[in-house]
Simulated assay, not measured.
Amino acid sequence: MSEDAHLIEMRDLARTFGGGRTVFGARKPQLTAVRGVSLDLAKGETLGIVGESGCGKSTLARMLVGLDRPTAGGIRLDGEDLSSSGTKALARRVQYVFQDPVSSLNPRQTIREILEAPMRHLLGLGRAEREARLAKLIEDVNLRPEFLERYPHEFSGGQAQRIGIARALAAEPDVVVLDEPVSALDVSVQAQVLNLLDRLKRERGLTYVFISHDLAVVESIATRVAVMYFGEIVETAPARAMFKAPLHPYTKLLIDSAPVPNRKRGTLGGDSGELPDPYDPPPGCPFAARCPRVEADCRETMPPLETKNRGENHRAACFHPLTWP
């Protein structure tokens, strides 16, 4: 992948919460949710970001759309600094679809008001232009025109999520960040929403960042996958290569733990326990305590994210990666 193809570049991105001292001088506890993430997003791809709950996926997503500010590092969109700019032009180019479709919509506004807000404030469209775009937008997400005059509580979860997707698209973005967009939906509705997202991506030339803990969903929709553990990227690769032959033991543990149809579940061994204490991070690799391939060097130094003889598109942060025939 050439440098020119990068739509978004994240460099040494970190986010901490807490810290500092109280008025009496006592030190406050500090939690680091994202730890020096460097990742690129190519135009037109679907980047899946996976990991256990608490690994930093949603914090990373919130920084990408400006809902949270990085403590360190930066985000660039087409060469412009996204993390500090705050301009409308950049804000509208990256939009967010929330996990809970109903609570993410303002209960006091009609669907028309919800969808018109980005058109008015980010695009500066007049009434006639908004009306024309509304008709096309509601049709694109397979909803009826009369829904525009209703309120969010009148819709099912699947319908509300379509409205959430329409709200993101109303700003005519280049990138859509989807944070667990189907986890709150029934399986049959999940399939409908995923098919809708696939069609909208093709028709509108969108780029997706798809956050999920459901590996089956990510495998079906992502072109490339990044695996997060304890706030860091531990492996990144094209989706097919990742699921066929993962390099990091944590990625293998995730895949073996997921009930994926037509895949024989393997066993890796090791401890399947919890994430380390975020207020007291261990030295070295944070997965060392759970890893069956752990050696002394793993407990001393955090392995860099680098290629492991699979080509530059498959990288892993592991001193002792898995080997495959």
Score class of each variant (00 low, 15 high):
Pro101Cys: 09
Gly158Met: 03
Leu215Val: 13
Arg162Asn: 09
Gly56Asp: 05
Gly36Thr: 05
Leu137Ile: 08
Asn309Thr: 07
Gly20Arg: 05
Glu180Leu: 06
Lys136Ile: 00
Gly44Arg: 05
Glu306Met: 06
Ala128Gly: 02
Val260Ala: 13
His213Asn: 08
Arg310Ser: 00
Arg293His: 14
Asp100Phe: 02
His121Glu: 14
Gly205Ala: 05
Arg21His: 15
Val34His: 09
Pro246Gln: 11
Leu60Ala: 06
His213Met: 09
Leu125Ala: 05
Ala170Glu: 11
Thr307Val: 06
Lys264Thr: 15
Ser103Tyr: 02
Gly158Arg: 02
Ala184Asn: 12
Ile163Tyr: 01
Leu64Thr: 05
Arg299Phe: 02
Gly79His: 10
Tyr96Gly: 05
Arg15Met: 13
Pro152Gly: 06
Thr236Pro: 00
Ser83Pro: 08
Ile233Asp: 01
Pro325Leu: 04
Ile165Glu: 03
Arg240Met: 09
Gly36Gln: 05
Val182Ser: 00
Leu196Phe: 09
Val227Pro: 01
Ser2Asn: 14
Arg299Asp: 05
Lys252Gly: 01
Asn313Tyr: 07
Arg130Ala: 01
Leu196Ala: 06
Gly54Leu: 06
Leu60Gln: 09
Phe243Asp: 14
Gly266Asp: 15
Arg162Thr: 12
Ser183Tyr: 02
Gly73Val: 10
Ile75Trp: 05
Gly36Ala: 08
Leu322Gly: 07
Val209Gly: 00
Cys285Tyr: 06
Gly74Ala: 12
Arg93Trp: 02
Ala89Thr: 12
Met228Trp: 02
Ser83Ile: 12
Ala5Ser: 09
Val227Tyr: 00
Leu134Val: 12
Leu60Phe: 09
Asp198Pro: 00
Leu197Asn: 04
Leu254His: 10
Ile221Phe: 14
Gly231Met: 11
Val218Pro: 00
Met242Trp: 00
Leu137Gln: 12
Lys308Gln: 15
Lys28Val: 07
Pro321Gln: 01
Thr59Phe: 06
Asp40Lys: 07
His213Leu: 09
Arg21Phe: 08
Lys308Trp: 15
Phe210Met: 10
Met302Ser: 09
Ser85Ala: 15
Leu13Glu: 07
Gly231Asp: 06
Arg133Gly: 07
Gly20Cys: 10
Leu178Asp: 02
Asp256Ile: 09
Gly25Glu: 14
Leu125Thr: 03
Arg240Lys: 12
Pro276Leu: 01
Ser58Ala: 01
Cys318Asn: 12
Gly86Met: 08
Leu122Asp: 15
Ala245Asp: 13
Val94Trp: 06
His248Pro: 07
Ala14Lys: 06
Pro282Leu: 10
Ser272Gln: 11
Arg224Gly: 12
Ser272Val: 15
Ile211Lys: 02
Met119Trp: 14
Asn309Gly: 10
